[in-house]
């Protein structure tokens, strides 16, 4: 589904070069539910931005769904984002001027579908997240969990093959977070590939594969089982 080979991303300011990703390679298979963990500044968000074609990278290749998307034009990238990828953000990013229905409608609008088929897709997506009754509400009238469920509906309404979630539960309490995870699992089981960045090891464990990032490099727990990041001294375990 998603293959990155030797991807490098450097942020430059006047005096400093920050290597957000260096010689980064990863392969995610279709239907996987991958969780990405790592401390702040380890390159999680950079990885997700590049995976979602939100940001360009300096070196390497990136193949998405069998297509090399390394050097697409802005217009082509917009099309890929719209048709193949669904985003879920930590801060929901609903558009406050639009009501629930119109928010979920946004990606479909860029696809040029007829009104009837859009309406059907939106209703299905809202039903999936359990918010059918609230389609006329504005984001400010919803709780955080409800807002994130709208965002999920918006992410899956276009039936993307890949769902990218950036700390989708970061702004939610644990009960709501769990609900959101249930939803993501449900989406995954219906065929979509899910890549989720998170801080929470418990949530990360619910994914089918966990990867760790450190200083812009990948540490794949499923394959390598590297040394723990902290010192698991007997003394520490004894506590």
């Amino acid at each position: 589904m998603l293959t990155m080979q030797d991807v490098r991303k450097v942020y430059r300011t006047e005096h400093v070069e920050t290597h957000a990703l260096s010689h980064f390679s990863i392969a995610v298979n279709e239907g996987e539910f991958v969780s990405v963990m790592g401390p702040s500044g380890s390159g999680k968000t950079t990885f997700l931005n590049i995976a979602g074609l939100l940001d360009a990278f300096d070196e390497g290749t990136y193949t998405l769904d069998g297509v090399d998307v390394s050097r697409l034009s802005d217009r082509e990238m917009s099309k890929v984002r719209n048709e193949k990828i669904g985003f879920i953000f930590q801060t929901f990013n609903l558009i406050p001027d639009l009501n629930v229905f119109d928010n979920v409608d946004v990606p479909l609008r860029y696809r040029g579908l007829g009104a009837a088929s859009r309406k059907q897709a939106i209703e299905e997506a809202l039903a999936t997240v359990g918010l059918s009754a609230r389609y006329k509400h504005y984001p400010s009238q919803l709780s955080g969990g409800q807002q994130q469920r709208v965002a999920i509906a918006r992410a899956l309404v276009g039936q993307p093959k890949l769902i990218l979630a950036d700390e989708p539960t970061g702004n939610l309490d644990s009960a709501m977070a769990s609900e959101i995870m249930d939803l993501l699992e449900k989406i995954n089981s219906s065929g979509a590939t899910v890549v989720m960045v998170t801080h929470d090891p418990e949530l990360a464990n619910r994914a089918s594969r966990q990867i760790h990032l450190l200083d812009g490099k990948l540490i794949d727990l499923a394959q390598e089982r590297p040394a723990p990041l902290y010192d698991p001294s007997p003394a520490g375990q004894a506590v």
Partner: peptide
């Protein structure tokens, strides 16, 4: 956000 959801310029 719109751009992320696929809106072109």
């Amino acid at each position: 956000t719109r751009r992320a959801l696929g809106a072109t310029r």
